[in-house]
Computed example of a mutant assay.
Amino acid sequence: MHIALVTETYPPEVNGVAMTNQRLVRGLLAKGHRITLIKPRHQEAPPAEHASLQVHEVFGIPIPNYAGLKLGLPRPGELERLFEADKPDIVHVATEGPLGFSSLRSARKLRIPVSSTFHTNFQDYCADYGAAFAARWMMAYLRWFHNQCALTTVPDPSLIQRLEKDGVQRLQMLGRGADTVLFSPDKRDPELRRSWGATAHSPVALYVGRVAAEKDIPLTLEAWAAARKHCPELKMVVVGDGPVRKKLERQWPEVHFAGMRYDEDLARHYASADIFIFASTSETFGNVVIEAMASGLAVITYDYAAGKQFIQSESNGHLVSLADRQSFIQCTESVIQEQSKMPPIRAAARATAINYPWSATIDRFNHLLQKAAKTEQITPQIDIVSNSEQSTL
């Protein structure tokens, strides 16, 4: 099958959506499919890594406050001509930005089946960036976008329920897995720990992800600071970059901000910590949770998304009721006060991750794409949110 996969983020960019797309592309190539990858142009992007992979790059403009990330802006007619020449069996749109919108319209005009993935709760991000008033408009656009598709994959059952209530149709569960070869306790590095000021016996807490408002890193750091009162040698490491990093570095000079880390280096950072503190409430899934579990860390997170899917509290990690900030801090304190309970929980976390390989995700995605490719267009093409939709806003 010939699959056109459209995304506005892909490695060398580092985020959950980019890394997920790369793993899906590699998995589909391994199954013998031909892939046309459509994404914004990136100077540091490596050449195509497989004979059956064609990369089509479009012009992009930088996203404010997100170094390295771009919105794709294809030329008028560019994607229509590409699809007409390449004749993909299906177009899978992974992001809903300008590039995704152009791909959706072009494919539907040519009557090529389209599938999509709901990766990001953009409607929730509006409040984090001072635009809460726009949340309903954003949800209206996302609903319109995904309802033009034969199916939309979603990584979490609870999110499916929420989106169905918001009127999004034809949703299909597509779980995520862990690369348990890359992310492993075996990657633990004593020298790296020493660079953080940690000894062999002092615990290290870790956060990995975008350093952005929607991740609520201040709560993660507040929880660490509270736990540190019980264990002064507890270190804190933040891996990632983003618009609030400099502000947090000024506010928290005792925290080690490691910046962006990749591949084996990222795996070393995971494995060299002991506790993973993740206070974000904006995830559709949260790849970092299963990566931390695969690395053998004791995870503290909220009871939703990846945490809800994989963690049994007090058995292979620790869950806190969603958005209960005080309980989150108290849970972190308790974990540090009861460090003797940590080894079996960390071992159980690793064992859980091993049971969720990426190969199962690839098989499921392959099945869904084949299903969508056989689907006739079932909704009329509409250029913008319908008048009835607008009247409710």
Rank of each mutant, 00 (worst) to 15 (best):
E80W: 03
K109G: 12
L110R: 01
E96Y: 03
A94Q: 08
Y125E: 01
L104P: 01
G100Q: 11
T120A: 05
K87T: 07
A127S: 14
D128M: 13
L79R: 05
S106L: 04
L104H: 05
F101S: 15
Q123Y: 14
L99D: 02
R108A: 08
C126H: 11
Q123F: 15
F118Y: 14
N121F: 15
L99R: 09
T117C: 01
F83R: 04
L99C: 02
P98E: 00
D89N: 08
G77K: 03
S115I: 10
L110N: 13
E78I: 02
S102W: 01
P98C: 04
S102L: 08
S116T: 11
A94C: 10
G77L: 03
D124N: 15
E78Q: 13
V93A: 05
D89F: 00
F118L: 03
G77I: 05
L99Q: 07
F122Y: 15
F101M: 14
G97I: 12
T117I: 08
T117E: 06
R111C: 14
D89V: 01
R81C: 04
L110V: 14
D86P: 05
S116V: 00
F83I: 09
F133Q: 01
S102D: 00
P88C: 02
G97F: 15
F122D: 09
G100S: 03
C126I: 03
G100T: 02
F101D: 11
A132R: 06
T120Q: 14
G77V: 09
D89A: 08
G130C: 05
Q123A: 13
Y129W: 14
Y129A: 15
D86N: 08
T117N: 14
E78C: 04
L104W: 10
K87Q: 11
G100D: 08
A127Y: 12
S115C: 13
E80C: 01
S116Y: 02
L99W: 10
G97V: 09
